[in-house]
């Protein structure tokens, strides 16, 4: 009894788990395919979908790929809540409800002709991965590209198998750091902000895209401004409670903006005053 209404933004569409990729001990990627094979799975890097599991609920999940092929769509998820755990329990072929894609995109166009700094913390690399792919697809349009990635421990690092290709094939600077390391970790230990002085970029002609916990983004933006970037060249993503994703429910309001439709990507100078206000 398929009866999905394409026009009602509150009605989930039917998707199925095509593939499941374990990314780390608590994070996995669901590759989803629409039941309706006519359906377009296009999205812009930075956008998110609302994923529903039967009887449990719905959560916003950022889209982590792919960029070129269509007909399927990747979501990288950390299994920490009820719904995300339920998503983790899904088997290949099982159904999920999907609404989206929602939200705005990373400033891929604006970054053309400039150096690009991508700063990610933890699962924050997931919504940035499509941005990275977009830059690669027109690599010659951009100057130096640097990815600065921080996570809690070595075993939490996402997509690290791709880093060598990113370095080698696309010539980007990839710097990784963890908050604490053991003897098997030969990389950097320290917060992600410490990586900024270790990459080369022209602060007067550079765009930065940051995604991670809010505190991490605040300090990262601060570090980048120390390095000479102006706040209007820094873009971050915001997270707030979200129920509808289309601007009706009011939950994700953040001062002048609705994170679901005006964000999740914001220019730092435009929201900094509100980020700096406690409990806003």
């Amino acid at each position: 009894m398929e009866n999905f209404s394409p026009t009602d933004p509150m009605i989930p569409r039917s998707y199925r788990v095509k593939r499941k990729i374990r990314e780390s001990h608590d994070t996995f990627t669901l590759d989803l395919q629409p039941d309706n094979l006519e359906e377009k799975t296009n999205f812009a890097p930075g956008q998110f979908n609302m994923l529903y599991t039967f009887g449990v609920g719905e959560v916003p999940i950022s889209i982590s790929g792919p960029m070129k092929e269509s007909g399927h769509i990747l979501h990288t998820i950390r299994g920490v809540g009820n719904v995300t755990q339920a998503l983790n329990n899904l088997k290949i072929g099982q159904k999920v409800g999907l609404r989206g894609p929602f939200g705005n995109a990373w400033p891929i166009e604006e970054a053309k002709g400039k150096d690009v700094i991508i700063m990610a913390g933890g699962i924050g690399l997931a919504p940035l991965r499509p941005a990275v792919y977009s830059l690669f697809s027109q690599r010659q349009q951009y100057g130096d590209i640097a990815l600065l990635y921080g996570s809690r421990k070595q075993e939490d690092l996402l997509f690290h198998k791709e880093f060598e290709t990113w370095r080698g094939k696309y010539g980007i600077q990839v710097k990784v750091t963890v908050d604490t390391g053991d003897r098997s970790w030969k990389g950097n230990v320290g917060v992600v902000t410490t990586l900024v002085p270790r990459v080369s970029f022209d602060p007067s002609n550079c765009i930065a895209m940051i995604c991670g916990p809010e505190v991490m983004m605040r300090f990262s933006a601060l570090e980048l401004t120390h390095a000479g970037l102006t706040e209007d060249k820094i873009f971050i993503t915001m997270e707030r409670n979200m129920k509808c994703a289309v601007g009706f429910c009011g939950h994700c309001q953040f001062g002048p903006a609705f994170i679901c439709k005006d964000g999740p990507v914001f220019r730092y100078d435009q929201i900094k005053p509100f980020i700096s206000t406690r409990e806003f």
Binding site: V80, G121, D156, V191, G212, P213, M216
Partner: peptide, 9 residues
Amino acid sequence: LQLLDIYGA
């Protein structure tokens, strides 16, 4: 910042 364990569960 490390103390905050911002990436932790």
